[in-house]
Structures are given as structure tokens and as C-alpha cells.
């Protein structure tokens, strides 16, 4: 069964068109991530699914039921926000039980669900505290707990990790992945961070300027990007886009090659370059190169490598990992 179906969703704020017709189907139990640069309309789309914003046109179905006219609380969704959005006047327990109280659930049922959620997220020692007495990571766990308690058909996350520091971000990411495995719940997750998208998603929806650029599994997006936008957005450091003519490649405008898909040799290779800058990351080394023929180029080598700035090196592309793009930036099968 499909957990969520969006049909040609459009949204304008006054004269500004923010979403230009979004179609998407999400299967039961899927973890789908919307990813795209800031301001591309991800949060707006999520708010439309939640019912916090009305679409200008189009239809939203959750669990096979049209929900366009239902208020957020009646849609069977739960949402986790970037700023946690805990109720400052309630304890952790109060925060987690408010939604069920509003829905008129029995006391015993509420207590049981809060206990279950608090166990899953190890919130037990915090239950009587107020949000002001919690750290950022704890607050976000409470916000996730508040969503769990509702047993929604659909979990919505709007950049839940953006306000956390790097270490907590990784921990919370693992926690969310674990929850998805244990609950086999359907989750929609918005982020601008492609690492989060790649590590968590069953399927990624890449958005740009109010349009869907491509939908696919992380490896599909990595190996077969539909266009230059997706190719450039997924993967870090960014894919190199080179002038096809200069490399004598015919039938394409641009040749794309990821930094990790080229080899460097001091003596011989396809392309002579000069080392402009070198970044040692321990596990890998990023080389910034400059070639007379095609300009700047980034290469990523695994392990430790030493090259002096200004040194001359030769680059060889892995031909099987090359991508070709046409005049409009679209992928050319090949």
C-alpha cells in the first residue's frame, strides 16, 4: 500500500511560485528523504503534507485517503522540527502526552505509550524535567519521543539534526536509523545535507527550485545522476565538470568525473596538471589541480599521499565512471 501520494502539488506565496507541480508516491515503511539547497521548497512541501500549509493546487493522500481538508492532528502524522519546538511550560512527560490527551486517549493508554517511547529513547531519567533543563541532543530526543507516542502513519522530520553539533548529529542519525528499523514506520525526512540523505534514505528525492530533479536510491543517484544538478549535489567533494570539447569527447557538452574516480601518477598519464593545493584528511587526501587544457580539477585519493604544491602530476580518468551531459545538463546514456 502507498503511505503517501502527492499529485501535482503547486504552491505560490503571492506572486512567488515556490513549488511547481510535485508528484511523488511513498510506499509503506519507506524512508524517503527530500534533499536540496536551502530555499528550494522542501519545508514548504513537508508543511503541505502535514496540513500546516494549504497547497495552491494538487492533492495529498495519506494511507490511501484524501487529506487535503483535514487539520494536521487528524492526518495521522507526527512531526519533528529543527528547533525541537518543545512546549516550554510542560515537563518531558507532559510534552509527550499532550497530543494523545487532545485526541482523548485513555490515561492508561497514554501512560503506557509514553513509557514505551521513553524506554526506546532512554528518556526515563528526564521525564519530570522541563525543556529548559535539557541539552540540545536531549531536547531533540524528546521531540522524537513526542512523535513516537502518537503512533503516526507517517513521520515527518524537518532538518532535525541541523541544530546539533557534529558528534550529536552522528549519534542522533544512528538513533533515527535504528527507530526506522525497529518500527518499520514510513518516514519523510527533509535535509539540505547530502551526507544525511545518503546514510539514512531508502530513496532520495533531490529537489531544486521547487522541482523534483531526480528520485532514486542513494546509489542510483551516485552512479546515474539524471542531470548535472544531481551529479553536483550528491557526493563530496563535488564532481568535476569538464568541457567535453577540450578533452576531445564527442556527443556531449560536459564530461563529469568524481574526484575519487581518477588516479594520479608522477610520471605518466592522460592529463598533465600542476598541484595548486593539498588537503590531508588522514583517511583521504584531496588534491586541487590545475591543467592548461581544462582548468581546475579536484582529485580525491585514499590514504596518505604527499605532493608538493607546484609539483607536476599526471591524471588518468577511470573511463567506466565518467558521466556525459548534454546541452541542458541532462544525462546522456553511455
Amino acid at each position: 500500500m502507498e503511505a503517501l501520494k502527492l499529485s501535482s502539488i503547486k504552491k505560490s506565496f503571492g506572486p512567488f511560485d515556490v513549488l511547481h507541480g510535485i508528484d511523488l508516491t511513498v510506499e509503506d515503511g519507506e524512508f524517503v528523504i527530500f534533499v536540496g539547497p536551502s530555499g528550494c521548497g522542501k519545508s514548504t512541501l513537508l508543511r503541505i503534507i502535514a496540513g500546516l500549509e494549504d497547497a495552491t493546487s494538487g492533492a495529498v493522500e495519506i494511507g490511501g485517503e484524501r487529506v487535503d481538508t483535514l487539520p494536521p492532528a487528524k492526518r495521522g502524522i507526527a512531526m519533528v522540527f529543527q528547533t525541537y519546538a518543545l512546549y516550554p511550560h510542560l515537563t518531558v512527560k507532559g510534552n509527550m502526552s499532550l497530543g494523545l490527551k487532545q485526541a482523548g486517549s485513555a490515561q492508561s493508554e497514554i501512560a503506557e505509550r509514553v513509557a514505551t517511547a521513553s524506554k526506546m529513547l532512554s528518556l526515563d531519567p528526564l521525564l519530570e524535567r522541563r525543556p529548559a533543563e535539557l541539552s540540545g541532543g536531549q531536547r531533540q530526543r524528546v521531540a522524537i519521543g513526542r512523535a513516537l507516542v502518537r503512533k503516526p502513519k507517517l513521520f515527518l522530520f524537518d532538518e532535525p539534526l541541523s541544530n546539533l553539533d557534529a558528534a550529536l548529529r552522528v549519534n542522533t542519525r544512528l538513533e533515527i536509523a535504528r527507530l526506522h528499523r525497529e518500527l518499520s514506520a514510513t518516514m519523510i525526512y527533509v535535509t539540505h545535507d547530502q551526507v544525511e540523505a545518503m546514510t539514512l534514505a531508502d530513496r532520495i528525492v533531490v529537489m531544486n527550485a521547487g522541482r523534483i530533479e531526480q528520485i532514486g536510491s542513494p546509489m542510483e543517484l551516485y552512479n546515474k545522476p539524471a542531470n548535472m544538478f544531481v551529479a553536483g549535489f550528491i557526493g563530496s567533494p563535488q564532481m568535476n565538470f569538464l568541457d567535453a570539447d577540450a578533452l576531445h569527447v564527442t556527443g556531449a557538452k560536459t564530461l563529469g568525473i568524481r574526484p575519487e574516480h581518477m588516479s594520479i601518477d608522477a610520471v605518466a598519464g592522460d592529463l598533465a596538471c600542476e598541484v595548486v593545493h593539498i588537503e590531508q584528511l588522514g583517511a583521504d587526501t584531496n588534491l586541487y589541480l590545475k591543467s592548461e587544457k581544462i582548468g581546475l580539477l579536484t582529485a580525491r585519493l585514499f590514504g596518505e599521499h604527499y605532493h608538493a604544491v607546484g609539483a607536476r602530476v599526471f591524471v588518468t580518468f577511470d573511463k567506466s565512471k565518467q558521466h556525459l551531459f548534454g546541452d541542458e545538463g541532462q544525462r546522456i546514456a553511455g
Binding site: 502535514a50 487539520p71 492532528a73 512531526m79 519546538a85 518543545l86 516550554p88 497530543g99 487532545q102
Partner: peptide
């Protein structure tokens, strides 16, 4: 006052009056 907070209230089924009196006014 944070939009997220008001939206969290809406998702939990609070009426606009409850959101106004219990979430926004104290802040």
C-alpha cells in the same frame, strides 16, 4: 515566537485559542 512551536501545537491538535493562550502568551 517560533513558528515551529505553534506548528507543533497544531500537529498535536491544540486549537488556535489554546495555542494563543498556552504557548504564545507566556512567551
Amino acid at each position: 515566537v517560533s513558528d515551529d512551536l505553534k506548528n507543533a501545537g497544531r500537529v498535536d491538535g491544540l486549537s488556535e485559542y489554546r495555542i494563543f493562550f498556552t504557548l504564545v502568551l507566556p512567551l
